Deep mutational scan, measured.
Amino acid sequence: MTYKLILNGKTLKGETTTEAVDAATAEKIFKQYANDNGVDGEWTYDDATKTFTVTE
């Protein structure tokens, strides 16, 4: 399945997608991606749209 991440960081904003077997796997990938890019904030997930959002 395709999952989407919306980044609302102070210095980085944008979107990315990943292919993952489930939401938990996608979350791990996205949290590593956000960490690698210096984004740390409040996480939400919308199962209907398979979208994670992180807001600093």
Rank of each mutant, 00 (worst) to 15 (best):
M1E: 14
M1A: 13
M1F: 14
T2K: 12
T2G: 05
T2Q: 11
T2F: 13
Y3G: 01
Y3T: 01
Y3V: 02
Y3S: 01
K4Q: 05
K4A: 05
I6G: 02
I6F: 07
I6H: 05
L7M: 14
L7Y: 12
L7T: 06
L7G: 02
L7I: 15
L7W: 15
N8V: 13
N8H: 11
G9A: 09
G9F: 13
K10R: 10
K10T: 09
K10H: 09
T11K: 12
L12G: 07
L12I: 14
L12R: 11
L12V: 12
K13Y: 12
K13W: 10
K13E: 07
G14V: 15
G14D: 08
E15Y: 12
E15N: 07
E15D: 06
T16F: 15
T16V: 15
T16W: 15
T16K: 10
T17N: 07
T18S: 06
T18N: 03
E19Q: 15
E19N: 13
E19H: 14
E19F: 14
A20F: 03
A20Q: 05
A20M: 02
V21W: 11
V21H: 09
V21N: 12
V21I: 13
V21L: 11
D22M: 04
D22K: 03
D22N: 08
A23V: 12
A23L: 11
A23G: 05
A24S: 11
A24P: 09
T25E: 15
T25Q: 12
T25R: 06
A26W: 01
A26Y: 00
A26M: 01
E27G: 07
E27P: 00
E27T: 04
E27S: 08
K28E: 09
K28V: 10
I29G: 03
I29W: 12
I29M: 07
I29V: 12
F30W: 02
F30S: 00
F30T: 00
F30D: 00
F30Y: 02
K31L: 08
K31R: 13
Q32N: 07
Y33Q: 03
Y33S: 02
Y33K: 03
A34E: 01
N35K: 15
N35D: 11
N35F: 15
N35G: 11
D36F: 09
D36Q: 13
D36I: 10
N37A: 14
N37D: 03
N37P: 01
G38H: 10
G38P: 01
G38D: 08
G38R: 06
G38W: 05
V39L: 11
V39A: 04
V39G: 03
V39P: 02
V39W: 14
D40I: 13
D40R: 14
G41F: 03
G41S: 02
G41D: 02
E42Y: 13
W43R: 00
W43V: 02
T44G: 07
T44V: 11
T44S: 15
Y45D: 00
Y45G: 00
Y45I: 02
Y45E: 00
Y45Q: 01
Y45F: 07
D46N: 11
D46T: 05
D47L: 07
D47G: 09
D47T: 09
D47Y: 10
D47K: 09
A48E: 12
A48F: 12
A48P: 08
T49P: 02
T49R: 07
K50A: 06
K50Y: 11
K50Q: 12
T51E: 04
T51D: 01
T51Y: 03
T51P: 00
F52V: 01
F52Q: 00
F52Y: 06
F52A: 00
F52W: 07
F52N: 00
T53I: 09
V54I: 10
V54K: 01
V54Q: 01
T55M: 08
T55Q: 05
T55W: 09
E56G: 06
